[in-house]
């Protein structure tokens, strides 16, 4: 019988991270598919609260590594804790949440256990008795379905795909493991979290709407003028009023980085597609993005998509957006701001 292990660190307040809940949800799905045993491994300063609030009774056993050294997000200590749990659990499938912290850790741990790893998994299925997982390659442009014979198989799931369990929690019997905190684990010290400079928060992962600004905002407008300052005002006002998250195309971000300073608040962290992120939002509104990445890869995980573009034949919106408004984004967004302001 297969044994599935979910591994995750806890948040600094001792709760289970949202992404870990999703991983647990995924693992429960998989447990049913494989008729497997499910266990959980958690590390952090104090993990009991998380173990007591799993939202499911499907977990049969637990493992924990506790201590101050395991509180912070640090590869060496995270990998050591995760390794200890995995060695003890002896699971053949290890499910991990989609977080920066765990994604940094699992490939190394899998390697230590002579296992294999796959990240950003969006689907499980059983084909001819084998577990087949799906993931996107080439920046969300090609979907691949793959299986592996080697175990343990570490699988990091893509966020937003699986639902965290919401049922009654049954606390599994949990084994505490000790990990030697030697110098090698603490060569790195975590100093804190830095938030981006600037008055306006432009990246809001939890926002319902992703507003994507394309390079058209800083190009010559039909009257032959570049209106970057006006563009900046319109965009910032919209973000403020709508509380949406700002995404941008690579070309617009590059312009900023090369000193053109067209939209002063735009940084590479705003970029979607290409070397940027592929964020998850319910809605996406792309503006002035003719032929640019948002339509292609950057908003693969955006559910409802609308576009404002001057070209009715924009082939890169066709088939990829739900609605294409043929209009001047400057005019429309100014009006949108006005209406939002009035409300």
């Amino acid at each position: 019988m297969s044994k599935i292990l979910v591994v995750t660190p806890v948040e600094s307040d001792g709760t289970l991270p949202q992404a870990a809940g999703e991983a647990l949800g995924a693992a429960i799905t998989l447990k049913e598919m494989l008729e497997a045993e499910l266990c959980i491994g958690i590390w952090g300063q104090d993990v009991d609260m998380a173990i007591e609030n799993l939202g499911t009774d499907a977990v049969s056993s637990g493992f924990k590594v506790e201590g101050e050294a395991f509180t912070v997000s640090r590869y060496a200590s995270d990998a050591a804790a995760c390794e200890a749990i995995c060695r003890q659990a002896k699971a053949d499938i290890v499910i991990t949440p989609d977080s920066v912290r765990t994604n940094r850790t699992i490939a190394g741990v899998a390697f230590r256990l002579n296992g294999v790893s796959d990240t950003h998994i969006t689907e499980f299925k059983i084909e001819n008795g084998d577990l087949v997982v799906s993931r996107w390659h080439y920046r969300q442009r090609i979907l691949a379905h793959l299986k592996r014979s080697q175990r343990p198989w570490f699988i990091s799931i893509e966020s937003g795909v699986f639902i965290p369990p919401q049922g009654d929690s049954k606390v599994p019997s949990t084994e505490a493991l000790s990990v030697d905190v030697n110098d090698a684990l603490t060569r790195t010290t975590v100093k804190g979290i830095e938030t981006p400079a600037g008055d306006e928060q432009t990246i809001r992962p939890d926002a319902e709407l992703l507003f994507v600004a394309g390079a058209g905002w800083t190009k010559k407008q039909p009257d032959g003028e570049v209106k970057a300052a006006q563009a900046a005002d319109i965009i910032l006002e919209f973000l403020k009023e709508s509380k949406s998250s700002l995404g941008s195309t690579k070309s617009l971000v590059d312009l900023s980085s090369e000193g053109a300073a067209v939209l002063p608040f735009m940084t590479q962290l705003n970029q979607v597609g290409q070397t940027g992120s592929t964020p998850r939002h319910d809605k996406g509104l792309a503006t002035c993005c003719h032929g640019e990445e948002p339509h292609v890869v950057g908003w693969r995980f955006v559910n409802e998509r609308r576009v404002i573009n001057l070209d009715p034949n924009c082939g890169w919106a066709h088939g990829k957006a739900d609605v294409l408004y043929v209009a001047d984004a400057f005019t429309v967004m100014q009006k949108v701001n006005e209406l939002l302001g009035n409300q």
């Binding site: 997000s73 640090r74 977080s99 920066v100 912290r101 790195t188 010290t189 975590v190 100093k191 804190g192 979290i193 830095e194 938030t195 981006p196 928060q201 432009t202 990246i203 809001r204 992962p205 962290l269 705003n270």
Partner: peptide
Amino acid sequence: IEGGKHLHSS
């Protein structure tokens, strides 16, 4: 890290 922030380590 998540949310357009940076983790500062030494």
